[in-house]
Write a protein that binds this DNA or RNA. Structure first.
Lengths: 163, 163
DNA sequence: CCAAATTGTTTTAAGCCTAAAATGTTTCCC
DNA sequence: GGGAAACATTTTAGGCTTAAAACAATTTGG
């Protein structure tokens, strides 16, 4: 017992399985993301980040602040600034300074933005369905469960570093 | 039977579950990737793409062509060109034109590149292990299986589009 | 043999992305 | 009230990324 513990401490642990899991996770995401990116470009001439931003706003009829968007999309603040700039320019987004807090910018989809997003989203959903089509409903449930656990684990690990 | 089939065709299918699965998959990957990116920067002042490229080369002692790298990393050719350029510049990579086919560039890790990569990889492995630490060995196995199935499904779907 | 197709890489133009510093605004609290 | 801390956003500098076009070298099929 003491021997095995000593050994466990001195022997470098083998984390090859976790590493493989991480690479596989990354491969799946990259594969699907690339496919979605290409289809968005070909069918609608829109980039994936723009689509993602519009998706966030579609769920928030009263608009969102840039910080909200940044947190939800898990991207940097500066990134959102540029993305929003281009989408306002193209008429998809409306941006105004909050009246109660002049630091805050509230953005919303314009009528055009909402219409275009809905059109894209409908088709997008069928792409995703097809990409995952070989999974059974049980597979989907099980993956959801395991990925929830993965997310929680990663958040704990990430949080501990910052704490 | 005919009624239910007719209905299935006319009613827009509900793919909300697959959509949620995709978003969760993306969240997990983004979360972990961001964490790894930050740690690589803080501990080693290296970017994630550089690390990934060196990881590919570490597994290929005889070197790889740029196309090989591009396929393995699932990024565009032009992307690899730039990455390699900077890593050759910093002395981590060695690049030479193939003697049998003058179109081909073969790249390898230099002694410095290999040493630095090994040092980083050892620590990187512990980060990944910690990020996934709340998963049981059974969870890991099950995730591997389901992600393999997901990858196959996505490849089928992606392939059909190009075919 | 040689033109056409294919393959490997680079270039181009545009956009995405990050971390860190800077700017402007509000809140806290003494 | 007023300075310090916190917050929201933008700016900066540099690097990553893509799709598409251009270029170079090889292979293929008449």
């Amino acid at each position: 017992m003491l021997d095995s513990e000593t050994k466990a401490v001195e022997t470098p642990e083998d984390h090859a399985e976790e590493l493989r899991l991480w690479l596989r996770l990354l491969t799946c995401t990259t594969l699907i993301e690339g496919e979605v990116r290409g289809r968005l470009r070909q069918r609608f001439d829109v980039t994936l980040p723009r689509f993602d931003l519009m998706a966030q706003l579609d769920k928030a009829p009263d608009g969102m602040t840039l910080s909200d968007v940044s947190k939800r999309m898990m991207v940097s603040n500066g990134n959102v600034t540029g993305l929003v700039e281009r989408l306002v320019e193209s008429g998809h987004l409306d941006r105004r300074t909050s009246e109660t807090d002049r630091r805050v910018q509230v953005i919303r989809l314009t009528k055009l933005g909402r219409a275009e997003f809905r059109r894209m989203a409908a088709e997008h959903e069928t792409w995703i369905a097809d990409l995952f089509a070989d999974l059974t409903p049980k597979d989907v449930r099980e993956l959801m469960r395991l990925l929830a656990k993965t997310k929680a684990s990663a958040q704990r690990s990430a949080g501990r570093r910052r704490a």
